[in-house]
Amino acid sequence: MKVTIEENEETGKFTIKVKTEDGEEKTIEIPKENLEEILAKLPPNVEII
């Protein structure tokens, strides 16, 4: 699983794009305050880009 994290400076939010092993892609946008909480919940086999 690969996770790409991009900061949107205009909105102050982060866009998180997840690509699973089977090629499925999902995108979510979260507030900056929630980034550490989300990262802590990721499984250890995740590659963060």
Rank of each mutant, 00 (worst) to 15 (best):
M1Y: 10
M1E: 02
M1G: 04
M1L: 09
M1P: 06
K2R: 14
K2H: 07
K2D: 01
K2W: 15
K2V: 13
V3Y: 09
V3A: 02
V3L: 07
V3M: 04
V3N: 01
V3C: 11
V3H: 02
T4M: 06
T4W: 15
T4G: 01
T4K: 04
I5S: 01
E6Q: 09
E6C: 14
E7C: 15
E7V: 13
E7A: 09
E7M: 14
E7Y: 15
E7I: 14
E7T: 06
N8V: 04
N8D: 08
N8H: 06
N8A: 04
N8Y: 03
E9T: 14
E9K: 15
E9L: 12
E9V: 14
E9A: 13
E10L: 12
E10Y: 12
E10K: 12
E10M: 12
T11N: 11
T11H: 04
T11K: 08
G12H: 05
G12M: 03
G12V: 01
G12Q: 05
K13N: 13
K13A: 07
K13F: 12
K13S: 12
F14V: 09
F14G: 01
F14W: 11
F14K: 02
F14C: 09
F14H: 03
F14S: 04
F14Q: 01
F14T: 05
T15F: 11
T15H: 06
T15P: 01
T15R: 11
T15Q: 06
T15A: 04
T15K: 09
I16M: 07
I16K: 00
K17H: 12
K17D: 01
K17M: 07
K17G: 02
K17I: 13
K17A: 04
K17Y: 14
V18N: 00
V18M: 13
V18C: 15
V18Y: 15
K19M: 14
K19R: 10
K19Q: 14
K19T: 15
T20R: 04
T20K: 05
T20W: 15
T20N: 08
T20A: 06
T20E: 05
T20P: 03
E21F: 10
D22R: 06
D22H: 07
D22Q: 07
D22W: 09
D22N: 10
D22Y: 10
G23S: 03
G23K: 02
G23I: 01
G23P: 00
G23C: 07
G23M: 02
G23T: 03
E24G: 08
E24T: 10
E24L: 10
E24Q: 12
E25W: 15
E25N: 03
E25Y: 10
E25M: 08
K26G: 04
K26W: 15
K26D: 04
K26E: 09
K26C: 15
K26V: 14
K26R: 13
T27N: 05
T27S: 07
T27V: 13
T27D: 03
T27Y: 12
I28S: 03
I28W: 15
I28H: 03
I28C: 15
I28D: 01
I28N: 01
I28G: 01
E29P: 02
E29N: 06
I30K: 00
I30P: 00
I30C: 13
P31V: 08
P31K: 10
P31Q: 10
P31L: 13
P31I: 09
K32M: 08
K32E: 03
K32Y: 11
K32G: 10
K32S: 07
E33V: 06
N34K: 14
N34G: 13
N34Y: 14
N34A: 14
N34E: 14
N34T: 08
L35R: 02
L35N: 00
L35D: 00
L35S: 01
L35Y: 04
L35P: 00
E36C: 15
E36D: 11
E36P: 11
E36I: 12
E36G: 10
E37T: 08
E37Q: 12
E37S: 10
I38M: 11
I38P: 00
I38C: 12
I38D: 00
I38Q: 05
L39V: 03
L39M: 06
L39I: 06
L39Q: 00
L39Y: 02
L39C: 06
L39T: 00
A40L: 11
A40H: 06
A40C: 13
A40N: 07
A40Q: 07
A40Y: 06
K41N: 11
K41I: 07
K41R: 13
K41S: 11
K41A: 11
K41F: 10
L42M: 06
L42D: 00
L42Y: 06
L42G: 00
L42T: 01
L42E: 00
P43L: 09
P43W: 14
P43F: 15
P43Y: 12
P43E: 05
P43T: 06
P44M: 10
P44K: 10
P44N: 08
P44C: 11
P44I: 09
N45A: 05
N45Q: 06
N45S: 07
N45L: 06
N45I: 05
V46Y: 11
V46G: 02
V46A: 10
E47M: 14
E47G: 05
E47T: 12
I48C: 08
I48F: 10
I48E: 02
I48M: 06
I48H: 03
I49N: 05
I49Q: 06
I49T: 07
